[in-house]
């Protein structure tokens, strides 16, 4: 048993109209911007809405959840003096909305979990899939991460000085994983680690047994725009490196003063 990447899709790669990916207008009309972005990415990743049928696990990760809906709900609480609150923004503001929505599209009642742990969210979701594979409960698993940017979030975090080196970003990435190596496998997840302290650049290669030919990707160096689950986007870059011939790629995720995470991908042997 292992954990193999079968397909990976970022929101920027979604070319199919959301009306095709989610044909039911009744479902679509309650989907806010981030839900549309994440669900579209997920559906594209599994090759269309029917691809949800064969999933054995849907595991999502987010730092902020459906932030715009949370803000809308809180603004309604203030403007309407805690009375006459619209139910839709409240329902949509929960973190597991995306995971639930993916499952509801095809009434897939498989294992469904959402991880919300700031910059570790994606790695926690990946670890869940890794452990399920180890326990023989893996099968075909969809793991994804999403976060959206809002104007108020940008302003608040700007005041905290978080955009001095980077800009505020948003995005979603979904990865289709299998616990068995298949013809479609493009990379293998070799290790997921949660070191207790920051690791210096000189020490990473030695600690994780990387040779000069191996690639180390630092999340804050790989992108100008950051958000809590940016490491999922860097994970997608790592898969691309493997596709282009790298035998081992390490993703080092550390930012905003939190302890780091390490994910190591290897080529299929």
């Amino acid at each position: 048993m292992g954990l193999y990447v079968s397909n990976i899709t970022s929101d920027s790669q979604v070319v199919t109209d959301v009306k095709v990916l989610v044909p039911d207008a009744g479902v679509r009309r309650r989907m806010s911007r981030v839900i549309r972005m994440a669900v579209s990415t997920a559906v594209e990743c599994v090759g269309g809405i029917e691809g949800i049928d064969g999933l054995d696990a849907i595991i999502t990760a987010t730092g902020y959840g459906c932030l715009a809906d949370s803000e809308r709900f809180l603004r309604n609480v203030i403007s309407d003096k805690e009375d006459l609150l619209n139910p839709t923004p409240f329902i949509q503001s929960t973190f597991n909305t995306v995971g639930g929505q993916i499952a509801l599209l095809r009434h897939n009642h498989c294992y469904n979990m959402t991880y919300v742990n700031r910059i570790h969210s994606f790695e926690d979701a990946l670890l869940d899939a890794f452990m399920r594979a180890e326990d023989g409960e893996g099968g075909r698993m969809l793991v994804g991460a999403f976060d959206e940017r809002t104007d108020s979030q940008y302003e608040i975090m700007k005041r905290m000085g978080l955009w001095r080196k980077h800009d505020c970003g948003e995005g979603s990435v979904f990865v289709l994983l299998t616990s068995q190596k298949e013809d479609s496998s493009i990379a293998e997840v070799l290790e997921i680690d949660f070191p207790s302290d920051s690791i210096g650049e000189q020490d990473i290669a030695q600690r994780y047994g990387c040779s000069d030919d191996d690639v180390i990707l630092y999340n804050v160096c790989c992108t100008m725009e950051i958000y809590p689950t940016i490491s999922a986007s860097v994970f997608a870059q790592a898969v691309e490196k493997i596709k282009k011939g790298a035998s081992k790629v390490l993703v080092y995720n550390e930012m905003w003063g939190m302890t780091p995470t390490v994910v190591i991908l290897g080529c299929i042997v």
Partner: peptide, 17 residues
């Protein structure tokens, strides 16, 4: 229109507001 129970709550708010 095929509305559901959540929409009913929204309509109550439309009437009140």
């Amino acid at each position: 229109l095929g509305l559901d129970s959540i929409d009913a709550l929204e309509i109550i708010l439309i009437l009140e507001k």
